[in-house]
Each structure stands twice: as C-alpha cells, then as structure tokens.
Design a protein around this nucleic acid. Sequence first.
DNA 1: CCTATTCTGTATCTCCAGATACCGATTTTG
DNA 2: CAAAATCGGTATCTGGAGATACAGAATAGG
Lengths: 231, 231
Amino acid sequence: MLDKYFDVIVNVSLFYGIERTGIANMLNCLKPRVGIYKKGDYIVTSGQTYENVGVVLKGTATVSKESISGNRIVMTLLKERDIFGEIVAFSSMATWPATVQAQEACEILFLPRSKIVGDCDKMCSWHRIFIQNFLRVISERAIVLNKKVEYLTIKSIRGKICSFLLDHYNKSGSKEIELALNRNELADFLNVSRPSMSREMSKMKEEGVIDFHLSTFRIIDLQALKAMSEL
Amino acid sequence: MLDKYFDVIVNVSLFYGIERTGIANMLNCLKPRVGIYKKGDYIVTSGQTYENVGVVLKGTATVSKESISGNRIVMTLLKERDIFGEIVAFSSMATWPATVQAQEACEILFLPRSKIVGDCDKMCSWHRIFIQNFLRVISERAIVLNKKVEYLTIKSIRGKICSFLLDHYNKSGSKEIELALNRNELADFLNVSRPSMSREMSKMKEEGVIDFHLSTFRIIDLQALKAMSEL
DNA sequence: CCTATTCTGTATCTCCAGATACCGATTTTG
DNA sequence: CAAAATCGGTATCTGGAGATACAGAATAGG
C-alpha cells in the first residue's frame, strides 16, 4: 500500500541508515496512516489532540500559528520528506501547538506516537536505529533553535552580521562566503529591517572590514570582525 | 557504589517512572562513571570529545560559552538533579559546545551515550521508559527554546511584556500573576534593559492596562493587552 | 531595631534602527 | 530581446530604547 511512496520514505531523515526491507518491516509494525489533502485543506489544526508525527510524502504545506490577537503567522514551509510534530511527540503536550495546512495537494504519512518507542516486543535492530534517528532529529532541531537564540540575543545589527559571517567562516574555513539567502531572508533571519541591515553592511565595507557583491561576501579584516561580533 | 546517590538519582527526570530496582538494573547496564570535582575544576571543556550525558549528583556548576572574541559568558546554572549535554548526545556533534565548571564542590554522574539507546539485548521495559524520558527531556528543551525565540522576535518592549503576561494568564487562568523573577531577571529574559522595561510597565499602569506592585501583577484590560501583544 | 544592601521606579540625554520612498541593477518571462 | 517584476543600495526623518544617575522602597543582616 505504501509502495508508491517508498522512494520518498527511504530518504526521510527518520529512516536514514535502515535498509529497504527494514523500513518495510518497520512500517508494518508502526501501522501508519496516509492522509490525502487538497490545496487549502487543514492537515492538523492548532488545539487538536496530538496523536501522530507527520511526514510529507508529496506536496507542500505551511505550519502556522495563530497569534494571541488572531492573525495567522506562517512559521515554516514543509516540502517532500519534511517531518512535522516531532517535537510534540514526546513532550507532555497533548494538543497541536500549530496548524498545518496544505499549500498544494498533499499526501501525508502519520506515524502514531504510541508505536514509535515500541511495544514491538523484540525491539528489532532497525527499531533501535529508528529511535536514534528520532533523537538526532529532535536534538538537531534544538541546536538550531539554540543558535537562533544566540543571534537574536545580540543587540546591534553590526554584531549580528559579524557573528553570522564568523559562523560561516568557522564552518567553511574560507573567508569567501556564498550565501544561500537573499537580503530579505537574511534580514528576516536576523530579525532586523532590510534597509538598516544594508546600511550597516555598507558601512562595514567602507571601513574595510568586509567586502561583498550580491550574495558573495569576503572577510577582509578578521580581527576587526571578531572584535565587533558582540557589540 | 552508587548507593549513596540513590535518593538523588531517583528524582532525576531521566528516571521518572522507573522503580528503584529498575533503576538499579539500569545503572548496572549503563555502567556510569562518577566524577568528583573541587570548586573551580573543569568538568568538561568546550571542544573536548563528547562521550557522556552528565547528571549533577551534588553541588552546583556553571555552563559557559567562550564568545568569538574570547569572553566567557555564563549560560546556565546547574544544580542537583540537573542534566547537561543531553542535546549533544544524539546530534552529530562530536565535541562539547560549551564548558561546564564546578561552582562549588561537585559530584557528577556520566552516562555513556553509546549505552543509552541500548546494546542491552533484551531492551528491558524500564529501558524503554528511560528512552521515552530522554525524548521528553530533549523535546521540552526544544519547546522552551522555541518559546524563547518567540519572545525575542517581538520588537517592542511593550509587546514582549504583554506576551509574557498573557502566557502566564493562559497557563494559570488567573489575572493575578505572581512572578518568580525580579526585574533584572525579567529584563534579562526579555533581552531588554531594566529601566526601559520599568518605563514601559509604568506607562501601561498609567493607561490602566495592568497594575503591579513588586512581583505581583494584575491584568486589568485583557483586550488591550491582547491587542498590544505583538506591536 | 537600626544599618547596610539590594531592588525598583524615574528622569535625562543620546543614538541606533525602523519606516518609507526611490532609483538603479538584476533576473524573469513572455 | 524587451517589458515587468524582483532585488539591492541609499537618503531622510523619527521614535523607541539604551546608558547613566539617583532617590525611595524593600529586604537582609547584625
């Protein structure tokens, strides 16, 4: 029944490192449900009883949260192979904290939370890997959030830019940085306004700390960059 | 050998819901190590190879991070029964991202990461609970971080205060709120300066939206509070 | 119970960053 | 290839929040 989705499922991070036959056995034991949605359909709604971890098999969906005053804010965009609800699964929350809605026609795999840790008696070897994967996915989500908190905590725009560039430098080891984000997205990520960010970047270029053209950045004065990274 | 710590261990969140005998068996299988530290000793240092999840059995310790420019910033204070390193355990990180140092004489339990998911063949029932606990602890850490990101993303001080109070209201259901934080801690948490926060709170009091005296707050105009919660 | 210390509210001054508008550069698309 | 749409840099103006200083309230400690 899940055969047609197999090529997608095999590449879902929760199943990394498990062979096709293992996954097949596992799905047998997890007894997942597949939901099919039309564009605009609600996949889960905020406040609804939480029961399953979701996996997008096909299509795209938005994760949104109703703010206190009533406006909906889109928080994430989900695409094929993305997971949602994985953090709620094992917390003590009983309901969905956000709404997931089909942005285009969607097919979703639901893995029952109760089955994941396994009442599968023999706790087969692939099940162990599955749980490790689960732990890894959640942990990495936490690490990303932690990093985000670090950026947001920096007060000045300059400090944010410097930290951002330094992190890239530390990861790649190269003073030449190619960003995947455009200015709007970067400004959004750092939680500042685009013109203010541009202004600050231009100043830094003038001062000879960095150079850039469109999405290509180059660190010129590494020392200065470090010194300014936490103003 | 671990007998003297048992009353502490029983109350560690990772072991919730497991009977004493279960915990004893489990510790047998996890083969943990206990480390004893004097005040000021380094328990783990940033960059060191990651191997164990830590549990504070006795004493207090600080978690600190070296910023890029070299100053150390204390991020958390650990006390008896607190866990550290639980998020790194299952990520793909190979080294400690922060330093943990004994603030007073400390005794620490180290649970080897490799044993946690269990090469314990029969995956005993308490082991399953242990892993569920682990998942819960990490998930809840992620949820807290997520909440923190929400607060930090709000631009205005007023918005932050409103959201903060509303969250408390939603949790307790009461318009009378007793805070555990003092002004400095609250300002720190919201990442604003204390005088600026006080100024804003006073304005809101004047406007008849809230009332407060020291750590006792009262919501007067709930509608107004909601309306302002995301300026 | 009185002193010392910490905590909280308030005023002033300065300035950083947001909002807005606009233009040129770049990319997309028909 | 031309027209349209998106994207990026810059200028101006303004407001909100930070820094600092200080005084009164609350709490702790002897």
